[in-house]
Design a binder for these strands. Sequence first.
DNA 1: TTGTAAGCGTTATCAC
DNA 2: GTGATAACGCTTACAA
Lengths: 339, 339
Amino acid sequence: MKKGVTIKDIAKKLHMSVSTVSKALNNDPSISALTSERVKALAQELNYVPNEAARHFKLSRTFTLGLIIPDILDQYYAFAINGVEAVAEQRGYHVILSQSHEDVATEQKIVDVMVRHRVDGVIVSVTKNTVDMQPFRKLLQMGIPVVCIGREPKGGMFDFVTSDNHEGGFAATDFLIKKGHRHIAHLMGPEGMRTSHARYEGYKAALEANGIPFREELVKAVDLTPEGTYRAMEELLQLAEPPTGIFTFKNYITLEALHYLKTQRPELLEKIGFTGFGNLPILHYLDHKPLASIEESSFEIGEEAARILFERMSEKDEEEPTQYHSRQLPCRLVVHDHL
Amino acid sequence: MKKGVTIKDIAKKLHMSVSTVSKALNNDPSISALTSERVKALAQELNYVPNEAARHFKLSRTFTLGLIIPDILDQYYAFAINGVEAVAEQRGYHVILSQSHEDVATEQKIVDVMVRHRVDGVIVSVTKNTVDMQPFRKLLQMGIPVVCIGREPKGGMFDFVTSDNHEGGFAATDFLIKKGHRHIAHLMGPEGMRTSHARYEGYKAALEANGIPFREELVKAVDLTPEGTYRAMEELLQLAEPPTGIFTFKNYITLEALHYLKTQRPELLEKIGFTGFGNLPILHYLDHKPLASIEESSFEIGEEAARILFERMSEKDEEEPTQYHSRQLPCRLVVHDHL
DNA sequence: TTGTAAGCGTTATCAC
DNA sequence: GTGATAACGCTTACAA
C-alpha cells in the first residue's frame, strides 16, 4: 500500500497542528468556520482519505459487523444479508460476511476471526448442527453483542429474530385443508432445530382447529439433503393412505419433493398439492409449483436483527444483558398462479 | 468493545518485554524455545487474541480484499464469491463484500469505502452500465491492484478473468445445429457489454462453420430485465421464419424466455430448443429446461481472480503494471436430462 | 537471546 | 479557537 495523505501532511501545509486538522475534519464546533473551510478544501485537493484502520485502532471500535450464515447460495440468506447491510450502511457500518457451510468447526473458526478483527457486533444464523453456543456466549462476555436469525439457538439466552414459524405452519396447513385436502403430510425440518418444531406445531394446530385427526406417520423429518427428501417421499407414498397435500419445511424441500415425483411418480404430480415455507424468486419459473408459499421476509429479518444489534451496541457495557429480545416477524401466505 | 488482553499484559506477567512476547507469538527464530512456550501458554490461558486493527494499522496492510459484485442473489456471483473467499482464506486474508446493485453511483461509493478501509486489493465485476473506469484506475494509482471478473472493463488496462465466451457461444450454437436446428436465434446480452459481443461472435462463428446463413433479425439484445426478454421473444416469434432454437446470453434470460412461452405461446414450448450460458442449480428443478447449458465455472473464476490479485499484491510497488493478464477459463457444455 | 524505543494515523485531554 | 502531547496495540530496527 502506498502511503496516502495524512492529516499530518495537511497540518504541515496549512501551518496548523494535527489536532486542529482532525477536529476540523470531524466538524468539532470549537473550530472556526474559516479554518474548517481551509482544512476541508485542502483535504479535498490532496485527495485525503482517512485511514480507517488507524481510527479503528484508536477508537477501539471497528464500525464493523460480523455476519455468519450457513450458505450464501441459499437465497433466503442472500436476502437476509441485504437486510443487514441496508441497516448497517445507513449507520456507517460495514459488514464482514462469512459462511459456515453448515459446519460447526468452521463456524467456531469464523467466530475467532471476528474476535481478532474486533467486530463491534455479530449476527449469526447457526448451522443446523450447532448445539454448543459457548463460542457465542464468549462473544457476549467480551462485550460483543450477538443476535441470532432464522434458526433459534439452543438454550435461548440470545437475541433472536425469525419468522413467526408457528403461524406460518398453521397458515400453510390451513390453506391445504381449505382446498379440500384431508390427508396432509409434513416434511419437517431436522429434529434438532427449534424452527422445525415451531412449524410442526403450527401444522398440528391447524389440523386440530379443523377437526382433522393427526397421523404421526404423515410427518417425516428430513435432513435438508436431497436424498433425505427422496427417502421421506418414498415412505409417504407407500402408506396405505398416502397424503394428497404436503406442507414442507422449506423451499428446497418442495423443489426436491417435486423432483422426486417428476422422476419417480409422474402420475401423482398433479394430484398432490404443496405448500411450504419460502417464496424464492425461482419458484416463479417452475411449471409445477406449490399451491402457495409462506413468504418469510428474510430481508426484514436481517434488518430487524441489525437494528437490535445496534441497540445492544449502544447500551453501555453492563455485563451481559438480562433480557433477550425474541422477535417473530409475521409471514405472508402467497398463493401462486397456476396456468 | 471491552479491552481485551494485550501483549503488554502478557509481558508484565512474565516479566519480559513486549517485543519478546511479540516475537514469540510470531515464531521469530531468535526467541528461545522455552520463552516461546511460556508466552504461548500464558497467551492461551489468558485468552489473548491479537488485535488485528492494531496490526493492520502498524503494518499498513489490512489483509483484506474488497469484492464488488452487482448482486448476491445471482448465483453466478454467489459461486464467484465463494471462489474468491476460498483462496483468500487460504492465505489468511478476508474479504469484504459489497453489492453495486448494478448502480454506477453506488459502485463508486463502494470504491471510496474500500479506499478508506485500505483494502489490499480489489476484485470487481462492474455494473452493466459502468463505462468510466476512472475510479478503478485511481485504485491502481494508489497501489491497490484491481482484478475484474465476468464483465470486461471498458478500455482494457485491467487484469481480467472470465469464461471463454467465444468458445461457449460457439459450443451452444453448434449444439443446436447438431440437433438439427437451422433457424437459431440469439438473445444476446446488453450491447454495451463486451461479454455480449464475445458470445455473439461465437454464435456467428458456429453458424458459419456449419454453413448456415446468418440472419440479423434473429439476434436481439436484451437488457437483462424480464420485460426486455419478453419483448425480444415477441419479436422473434413474429418473424416470417421464426427460430426453432434459441441460444441465450444467460440463465435468467432462458428462464424468462421459457416463462414467456409458457404463458403466451404454450404450444411452442416443446418446439423450441434452448441453450444458454449458465448452469445454475435451479435449472435442475425445471420441467422445461434448456437442452444444454454452458457451464461457466464462476467459482474457478473467483479463485483465479484472487490468485492473480495476490500475485499483483506481492509484486513490489512499481507504478502501474505495464501488462495485464486476461484469462479466459474454458466453459463446459452440459447436456440436460429430459424425462 | 532479549530488551529499548520509535513509530504507524488518529483522537482526546488539557493547556494556552 | 488552537496547539502540544499522550495514547491506542503492535512490529521492528537496533542495541545490549
